[in-house]
Amino acid sequence: MGLTADICDIYREKVTLADPMFKSFGKKQTFYGPIHTVKVFEDNVLVKKSLEDIPEGSVLVVDGGGSMRCALLGDNLAAIAESRKLQGVIVFGCIRDSGEMNDMNVSIRAVATNPIKSIKKGEGEVNVPVRFANVDWKPGSWVYADEDGILITEDMLDLSVL
């Protein structure tokens, strides 16, 4: 079984399942870690800054408002996530350079791809609660993801029991 299936078997009452709307990019399929959020719309300046600033081992959750008109993350930003050893990035919106990302040791989830780059105004909010995929993403909560789905919990789970 996979990580999320095992977690659901043991911790079903403690987890919330995100709607299965994300495609997977990068070589890593499984990841988990504490959530850091950024809320933007068609502007990825704060996405880059967050990738550079959040602690190693974290997961960046990007609420891009679900926009399909441009990408919020490309291979250059994915390289930052890879070099800083971030666990993963979840984008409620689009990414680009997916072919390059698929050759990188990263785990990216996004709704779709789009070759158009975002604007660069630096507008948005960092580390605020956001809601998409029918779940609340709160800074400091934990996310667990694999090929079967994405789970959110208030606290870190004891995975030694799996």
Rank of each mutant, 00 (worst) to 15 (best):
M1S: 14
L3Y: 02
L3R: 02
L3G: 11
D6N: 15
I7Q: 02
I7M: 05
I10A: 10
Y11F: 15
Y11P: 00
E13S: 15
K14L: 15
T16D: 07
D19Q: 08
D19M: 01
D19W: 00
P20S: 14
M21D: 06
G26Q: 02
G26I: 02
G26S: 08
K27L: 15
Q29S: 15
Q29W: 05
Q29A: 15
T30G: 05
Y32H: 14
Y32W: 14
Y32M: 04
P34K: 14
V38E: 04
V38M: 07
V40D: 04
V40M: 07
V40N: 08
E42G: 01
D43H: 08
V45W: 03
V45A: 15
L46R: 07
L46Q: 06
V47S: 13
L51W: 09
E52R: 12
E52H: 13
P55S: 10
P55C: 10
S58V: 01
V59D: 00
L60C: 10
V61I: 15
V62T: 05
V62Y: 09
D63V: 04
G64D: 01
G65F: 00
G66A: 09
R69H: 11
C70M: 06
L73P: 06
D75E: 11
I80M: 09
I80E: 05
S83D: 06
L86H: 14
F92D: 13
G93L: 03
D97M: 07
D97A: 12
S98F: 05
M104N: 08
M104R: 13
N105S: 13
V106T: 09
S107G: 15
S107M: 02
I108A: 12
I108Y: 07
I108G: 13
R109G: 08
R109D: 02
A112K: 03
N114W: 02
P115F: 12
P115Q: 09
I116G: 07
S118K: 03
S118G: 11
I119D: 08
I119K: 14
K121Q: 06
K121G: 14
G122C: 06
G124R: 00
E125Y: 12
E125Q: 13
V126W: 08
V128P: 03
V130P: 11
V130D: 10
F132P: 03
V135W: 08
K138S: 10
K138Y: 05
G140K: 03
S141M: 01
A145D: 00
D146L: 03
D148M: 00
G149C: 03
I152A: 14
I152Q: 08
E154T: 09
M156I: 01
M156E: 07
L157Q: 01
L157M: 03
L162Y: 11
L162T: 10
